[in-house]
């Protein structure tokens, strides 16, 4: 029988909070914001597979996100059903990820970053320029949301639950993936690619498969996005989107499960909620990022854990010092 550890308790509480969220948030606007956080968390988790676990910083992931979104939106516009559109969108995203992977994995580090950046810009260029297909910067409307098992996802609550389900699946798949032998291999290629090769690993293929995995979840996030906004336009594929999701991963904490989720929450809340009250909200966002990078260079989640432990240790040691002093003091 498994016991209740603090970790399990925390996961349980988080799950209960997430599941009951519509009840205590109430207003559909905030439920929608929550859906948005979850869908960007899926995207950030997908990017984290590369940035955190493979040590490959991609600045072109908006390209994959948008490719899936456009594929889905255009299929729907052409009159196909949701099932076909979503299936094709995911296949197209995987295909795009394969192309991205083959081209970008010729290199690592800055080289990888520059190639992914260029590939992302190509997707943006196609979305913007191939107007007869993509309708240019006027974008493509998605008029309906899917109805899985006949359940309408039209209102905020139901869409939130659908997004939550996919988000949980993403988190679970990441957790399993990263604890697996393949996950360990991937981390090995990040830390010592040369040694991994000498140990018998196919470093390239390991990274390529990780790229596909990342592309798959980026594609899912892209689909969630078009169903959420009911719209896609070239700005979704822009460098800004790629940079934003990278910022989510880095600010939250790379190579952690919670980090990208926290990062997504910060960015989405700043952009959408705080901006209603603070005119210079992007300045505030900038200050927050600078603070995170200065005080918690490893990211918000690992940084908070470190600071909490330091604080706890200081608190505990102070207690101990008092005890010692009391003992050493001779009774008067």
């Amino acid at each position: 029988m498994s016991s209740i550890t603090p970790r399990r308790a925390a996961i349980g509480i988080a799950l209960i909070l997430l599941i009951t969220l519509p009840a205590w948030v109430g207003n559909p606007y905030y439920i929608n914001i929550s859906s948005q956080i979850l869908l960007f968390a899926v995207f950030a988790l997908a990017l984290n597979v590369l940035v955190g676990y493979a040590g490959l910083v991609s600045l072109g992931h908006a390209g994959l996100f948008a490719t899936a979104g456009y594929a889905g939106a255009l299929m729907l516009q052409a009159g196909y059903g949701h099932f076909a559109a979503d299936g094709v969108a995911i296949l197209v995203a995987l295909l795009a990820a394969a192309v991205f992977g083959v081209l970008a994995l010729r290199s690592t580090g800055i080289g990888f970053l520059m190639i992914t950046l260029a590939l992302g810009q190509i997707v943006w260029g196609v979305a913007y320029r191939w107007a007869s297909l993509t309708n240019g910067d006027n974008g493509v409307n998605v008029t309906t949301r899917p109805r899985p098992f006949g359940l309408s996802l039209a209102n905020a609550d139901s869409f939130y639950y659908a997004t939550l389900l996919i988000f949980l699946a993403a988190v679970a798949s990441m957790a399993v993936f990263i604890r697996s032998p393949f996950g360990a291999s991937l981390c090995g290629t990040r830390d010592q690619a040369r040694r991994m090769n000498a140990l018998g690993y196919n470093v390239w293929l390991t990274r390529f498969l990780a790229f596909l995995f990342s592309g798959f979840w980026s594609g899912i996030a892209g689909l969630l996005f078009i169903y959420y906004t009911n719209f896609i336009s070239p700005q979704v594929a822009s460098l800004q989107t790629s940079a934003e999701v990278l910022l989510m991963v880095i600010s939250g904490g790379t190579a952690t499960l919670l980090g990208p989720i926290a990062g997504a929450a910060i960015v989405v809340i700043m952009k959408n909620v705080v901006s209603a009250y603070v005119e210079r909200w992007n300045l505030v966002l900038g200050v927050i990022f600078v603070a995170i990078i200065t005080f918690m260079p490893e990211g918000l989640v690992p940084g908070s854990v470190r600071l909490w432990r330091m604080g706890w240790r200081a608190f505990r040691d102070r207690g101990r010092a008092n005890v010692l002093r009391n003992v050493s003091e001779p009774p008067s």
Binding site: V176, S180, P181, F182, G183, S185, G188, L199, G200, Y201
Partner: peptide, 16 residues
């Protein structure tokens, strides 16, 4: 990791 390098298990993404 050295042992895993020679084992087909290294491709397994689901086992712990």
């Amino acid at each position: 990791l050295a042992l895993l390098g020679l084992s087909p298990l290294r491709w397994n993404p689901v086992a712990a």
